Simulated scan of single mutants.
Amino acid sequence: MPLENSSSSHSAFFLAGIPSLEAAHSWLGILFCSMYIVAVLGNGALLLTIRLVPTLHHPMFYFLGMLGVIDLVMTTSLVPKMLSIFWMGAPKIDFADCFVQMFLIHSMTAMESGVLLAMAFDRYIAICCPLRYEAILTPQRVAQIALAILIRGIVFMAPLTWMVRRLPYCASKVIQHSYCEHMAVMKLACTDPTASRIYNLMGSTLIVGTDTAFITVSYGLILRAVMKLTQKTEQLKSFSTCSSHLCVLSLYYLPGMASIYIQCFPQGVPPPVQVLLANLYLILPPMLNPIIYSIQMKQVRDALQKVFPFLRELVGSPTGHFGWQGGPS
């Protein structure tokens, strides 16, 4: 169906879905709906397992639970509206709803980066200072870290949402995207949105740059500590405790940074590629995170089999060197 334009009213925007791929919207809807179902089931099962199994009541699994909550909020803010565009031809989104979606999605990505940093700090304490692990990562300290992550995400995104919302919009209200991505919305402004664009670029770079720098330092110290171990089996065990986290880090930061800079500097990148990358960046990690952790963490596998006995045949008995015991290594 043709997308509508509105005049100077701020009543609504219209989401274009994935430009130039309108003919494939139905099939793309099936793909993203399947990924969303896996993400909801996987993260929901992981959160329930962490809540019910006492052996998972450790800081690392609390951080993993935070990651699951963030992933559920982020994907639920994105996918249902996207499917209404792909399957029901309903591109309209109210003006206020658009900025609520923008705030939720982008603040969740900032919070996810903070949780990944907290998980790297947890691994550093567990491997480099195992005797002080419980004294450092107390329940109160974990709660303080969670609160700091929440506040940072809100403080970063609230001013940007306010700046973009106050821009005057005229002529076309068609957002060339499948959700209210702030760069795509800013392109519709009647005035120069340079201030908002600079704030976004600098804020995203500061958050991601700071987090990745501290994560790199943490794993550098971990590597140095592991290399001092005399037995190779101890080295492999220590490396295995970090393997799942390193996989999730790569899955989050590499496409995330690519998406941010492609949106800011889109020259030479076709619009469908930009939108697809932005969508996959928000949906693929939430879908794969619980799978990665359930495969590579022995305690998660065992706990899942206790809560969901039918998974025993699917997950299989824990073998290999991927076992992870939680807390200090």
Rank of each mutant, 00 (worst) to 15 (best):
S178Q: 05
V100W: 04
D122P: 08
A195K: 02
L28I: 11
L52I: 09
A184Q: 07
V53H: 05
L46M: 09
S244W: 02
C180Y: 05
M88H: 10
T109G: 08
G256I: 13
S243Q: 12
S204P: 00
K306M: 09
Y62T: 15
T109E: 15
D122E: 15
G327K: 03
L254A: 15
L131S: 14
L52S: 10
A120I: 11
E234Q: 12
D97G: 12
P54G: 02
W27C: 13
N279A: 12
A258K: 06
A118S: 15
G203K: 01
G68V: 03
Q274D: 11
F13I: 12
L277F: 11
L83N: 06
R51N: 13
M227R: 14
A45T: 10
P19Y: 12
W87T: 11
F14C: 10
T233G: 03
I127K: 01
I222K: 06
H57C: 04
A39H: 01
I127S: 04
P272Y: 14
H245S: 09
V273N: 12
D94M: 01
I207M: 05
C180I: 05
T319F: 00
T49A: 05
L277A: 13
F61W: 13
P130M: 06
I70A: 01
V53M: 09
S238Y: 08
L201S: 08
V115N: 06
L21V: 04
A189M: 07
T216W: 07
I151R: 03
V142N: 07
L251K: 08
A24W: 08
H182A: 11
A146R: 08
A12K: 08
V40Q: 09
Q296F: 14
L282V: 15
